[in-house]
Design a protein around this nucleic acid. Structure first.
Length: 218
DNA sequence: GCGACAG
DNA sequence: ATCTTGTCGC
């Protein structure tokens, strides 16, 4: 498949993204993450995990890990084509579906308006939020150093996301709308689920994978 | 042409 | 993303 075709898919995906709250209550939040056996090899073995927490207590109520081979390379702005297959496999096997999904990466804060979080939301029809550790696209002013402060990520005076401080004196995270949720609610949800820098759903999903990867080693 | 560039 | 010990700060 050519790069032009992939761009086409993202442009079509962007048209389907819903950037307003479109759900009932949010009582559970899920975090998805991936880890690779060898980042410098292609294809390579990879694992994906889903951890669902209860919003009220921030305690995990469900875990799941799936494994598969990934062959598509990592190319900036085309992350979804590398990780989506495994995320969908994880989604299909999940016995517990959270009310919203936190995905590692950008949502609409993407050159063509459809980062992996939006791609996942649009393809599954689920509510999703993009939570990234670094920026991919847009400009911003550094937010205040205290937990809770944030600034907006912009692209030509258009707000595409937010740079949120989830912990005092720590690097912020980049939050953007995935699908069926407003940026305001997404920011609020990320802050409500953060005890440390990374929101609990994502942090726990990541920790679970490190453990699985370590054990699948020797 | 140059710099930027999720995981 | 992954390779990796100690070390500095709250």
């Amino acid at each position: 498949m050519r790069v032009e075709d992939l761009k086409r898919v993202q442009i079509e995906c962007a048209k389907k993204v819903v950037q307003e709250d479109d759900f009932g209550k949010i009582e559970t939040v899920g975090g998805m993450d991936l880890t690779f056996e060898k980042i410098d090899e292609n294809p390579t073995r990879a694992w994906a995990s889903l951890v669902v927490i209860e919003l009220k207590t921030l305690r995990p109520i469900y875990n799941l890990v799936v494994e598969d081979e990934v062959s598509f390379p990592y190319i900036p702005t085309f992350l979804a084509f590398r990780e989506m297959p495994l995320l969908l496999k994880l989604y299909e096997k999940a016995a517990v579906k959270p009310d919203v999904y936190f995905i590692d990466g950008q949502g609409v804060a993407h050159p063509r308006g459809c980062g992996i979080a939006s791609h996942f939301g649009v393809e599954t029809g689920e509510v999703s939020v993009g939570v990234a550790k670094t920026k991919l696209f847009g400009h911003y002013r550094e937010p205040g150093s205290r937990r809770g402060s944030f600034t907006y990520l912009r692209h030509r005076d258009r707000i595409i996301g937010a740079v949120v401080r989830t912990k005092d004196n720590t690097q912020p995270v980049f939050v953007s709308v995935g699908h069926r949720i407003s940026l305001k609610t997404a920011i609020d949800l990320v802050l409500k689920t953060s005890k440390f820098r990374i929101p609990e759903p994502t942090r726990l999903a990541h920790n679970l994978l490190q453990k699985v990867r370590r054990e699948s080693l020797f």
